[in-house]
Each structure stands twice: as structure tokens, then as C-alpha cells.
Amino acid sequence: MGNLKTKDLSKIGYHNDQLRSLVISIAAKNFKHHSKEQLLDLLVQIKDNPEAFLDNELTAKIAEKVIGKMEVPAFSAYELRDEPVYCKTYGGKGIESSAKQQMELANLLPVSVQGALMPDAHMGFGLPIGGVLATHHAVIPYAVGMDIGCRMALTIIDESDGFLNRHEYQIKQALKNHTHFGMEGGLEVRQEHEVLDSPVFNQIPFLKPLRGKAARQLGTSGNGNHFVEFGEIELLPDNTLGLPAKKYTALLTHSGSRGLGSAIAKHYTQIAMNTCQSTTTYPPNYRCRRL
């Protein structure tokens, strides 16, 4: 089967996002040996006469969805505010201008209630990384972000600074064997985690084929600003961790949600773009236009 895409389905009249996700999922599972042309021809027949395909278990779900969702969702349009909502900026002198511009545009959205910009803010997709935006009855996928599982973790090891020198080789081997840096790839040992058993993977059609990617990339560090670093940390008396005041060896890691988070963000951003369009003309190549 050829690589069936949403734009292929749009061309033959499949405009509903849920319907397109369902079609792509069913096609990948049950029509692997069909060419793209054969599959598109079949889908046109289902769209034109869905009742004729209700008795076939391979096409019934698509036909049922077509019967209930033939209406193309109406686009809603919006205009930006004349004045931005209130936005609190922390450490503004150290924040790049492109991030400030993205935040300023987000604060003009009609659904925006209040914003905030953190000291580490930098340019992102739609909303700056380190930007916070409260909205009224609206979800902006790119404001939620691609790194939906992004996290940092600090592990404190009760060892002196000599620990790193004594075990330098073992530490390098541990990093090599138990994580992975880069866009693709994963770990050789399959990871186990309750997140992989989540029923959501079966409840949302477009997520089902992504479960394998999630399993492969679980425990990996990804690309960009993700890192694993060893260092030294000094805890002062009465620290919030309740540990004795002294110097410790520390392991600091930063990783994201990898390909799974990116796919989810892009999927729902496309839905948002299809259903809510701005009447405002944005500057060329300005990423925030995708909100």
C-alpha cells in the first residue's frame, strides 16, 4: 500500500479529521496489499454509497463514520485584539526578541486571558518555549507544545567528587548502553512502563500506530537541547530535601516526548488550523501564524 496521507483523503472529499484518522488507521492495518490508487478508488465508492459497505467488516467502520459525518465542519474565523492581554515577563533583559514577538502575538488572540514569560524563554513553535498562556474555552496545540512529556530530573548520589574520576569508564558505558541521542533510533532492550498499557492508544485511532514508536523511544534522550550530565552539588543546611549539608555527586538529565509528542502536536495543530482561521495577515515565515 502507498503512503496514504490526509491530503490524499481531502482531495477525494474526506474533510472530517476524525474520519481521516480512522481511514488511515484501518488502511494501514487491513489494506496493506492495496495500491494507493486502488484504496482511493475504494474510498470514493464508500463515500458515494456508504450503505453498500456496511456489511463488510473491513469497511463498515468507515461507512458508518461517513454516514454520520458527511458534513464538512464549518470554519470559524477570528480577528486579533486591538490591545494585548496582560503579560508578566520575568528576566526580560535576557530573553531574545523573537520570543518576545511570539508572546506579543499570542497575547493578541481573542481567546487569550493572561500571559507570562519565563527567564529562560526562547523562540518555539507558535508560543515561546518558557511562555505561559491562559485561554478561555480554547486549546492551542502548539502552546501546549511538542514536548508533552518533556522533563528534567536530578539524581543526588552520596559520593565525593572522586567518584566521577574513579568510575569514568563505567559511567560512559552506562550512558552509551542505557540511553540514546538523536532524532531516530532507540534502545536495544525493550523498556517496560505503565504508560505503554494506556487504553488511549486504542481509543484514539491515530495514536494506535504510534505505540511502537513510543515503546522504541522510551528511555531515550532525543535531539536538540536534551542532555545527560554528571556534576557536583552542594546542599546547604535546612535544605528542602532533608539531606545532610555537604557536597554530593549529581546526575542531571533532560529529555522530551520524542516522536510521539511531535506527532500528537502536529495532528491537533492541523485540526486547529482547519477549524479556526485568522483573518489577519501574518509576517512571512513567522512561525506564530500556525496558532
Rank of each mutant, 00 (worst) to 15 (best):
F163A: 05
V139L: 06
T59A: 03
N202E: 15
L235Q: 03
A63W: 06
Q45D: 12
H15K: 12
A52Y: 05
V139S: 02
N223G: 01
P73C: 04
I67E: 00
V144M: 12
N239G: 08
E71H: 07
L218W: 07
Q170I: 09
G182N: 03
T240E: 14
D82P: 00
F230G: 03
L218C: 08
K65T: 15
V66A: 02
Q18I: 05
L22T: 12
D238Y: 09
G231L: 10
H167G: 01
E104R: 10
L196I: 11
L291G: 06
M103V: 02
L187M: 08
A215M: 09
C276R: 13
K29E: 15
L105V: 10
L58C: 02
P283R: 14
M118H: 06
S112G: 13
A272T: 08
V200G: 06
P119N: 08
E234N: 13
H122V: 01
G182P: 03
A134D: 02
S255L: 10
S35F: 00
Y90G: 02
L291T: 13
F230N: 06
E37D: 10
S278G: 09
K176C: 11
H226V: 05
V132Q: 10
C288D: 09
D161P: 06
C276N: 14
P284A: 11
R190L: 12
L175A: 12
G13P: 01
K11P: 01
Q277V: 15
L252E: 06
